[in-house]
């Protein structure tokens, strides 16, 4: 399963007079892992929401594999191969683990692209609990289930919104395993919005820093995180030690 390149050109979003972000440009080639960081309110989740079709952009364009997908609703983008996860543990909570992933595979209608159910359950260590109702799972497994559902549609590009949020430090290695699996088997581009800098450093060979609605920096973590303007904007002038 090879992915398509995601290309974002001049993307902007305003809510009335409030500008969330402006003139966002980047490319995410297949197989690349791109981390998006920035202070709270920088527009990271809104960026995912716009790219995935949950909300409409104010201007700018989004391309997937050269095809203009700007403003299409999320169900249409899902069928084109835009997979996404949510900050919260968004699963179908009245359904079993198996049913959750099964629905993702069925609904996507991406015949030939969707991933096999048994394979997903096995690879994401959910086989033993596949008959449990999803909201009865521990929080960490619910997050993994949400990621597995996003991956189950057989995405061309995968957008992960704070996958490590709410996880214990020990549980965060699951995210590493998930991304490694996607990189190995999926070949699609992965965009990760995350506050956990250790995780971003481990997983992302390239990061994009959003600040006050603009792209402040775009490049390798070592280079970007050493920039004084990034340290000042995102990490605070006195927090260099945490970088």
């Amino acid at each position: 399963m090879a992915g398509d390149e995601l290309r974002v050109e001049g993307l902007a979003k305003r809510f009335g007079g409030l500008r969330v972000f402006h003139d966002i440009n980047f490319r995410l080639p297949p197989g690349e892992i791109l981390g998006v960081i920035g202070p709270n309110g920088a527009g990271k989740t809104t960026l995912i929401n716009v790219i995935s079709g949950r909300i409409q952009p104010s201007s700018g364009q989004v391309f997937l594999g050269g095809r203009n997908i700007t403003g299409q609703p999320s169900h249409a983008l899902s069928r084109l191969g835009v997979g996404r996860s949510f900050q919260q543990t968004n699963t179908f909570r009245s359904a079993s683990v198996r049913e959750n992933i099964s629905r993702a595979i069925r609904f996507s209608r991406r015949s030939g692209s969707a991933v096999g159910l048994d394979l997903l359950l096995r690879d994401f260590q959910l086989t033993d609990r596949m008959n449990e109702q999803s909201d009865k799972l521990p929080y960490g497994l619910q997050k993994m289930l949400g990621l597995a559902m996003a991956y189950a549609i057989g995405p061309q590009v995968l957008l992960l919104d704070e996958p490590a949020a709410g996880l214990e430090r020990g549980e965060r290695s699951r995210i590493d395993g998930f991304v490694a699996h996607v990189r190995e088997h999926g070949g699609c581009g992965v965009l990760i919005v995350e506050h956990d800098m250790d995780l971003i450093r481990r997983l992302c060979p390239r990061i994009l820093v959003l600040d006050a609605g603009y792209v402040l920096a775009d490049g390798p973590p070592a280079e970007v995180l050493a920039r004084p303007d990034v340290i000042k904007a995102y990490l605070g002038a006195g927090d260099e030690d945490e970088v």
Binding site: R54, T91, E99, R103, F107, S108, I153
Partner: peptide, 19 residues
């Protein structure tokens, strides 16, 4: 299944391709 998915969580259902 689609109707129940929409009842469970509309955003997630749409992200999975439900209309």
């Amino acid at each position: 299944r689609g109707l129940r998915a929409l009842a469970d969580d509309r955003d997630v259902a749409m992200a999975q391709g439900m209309r």
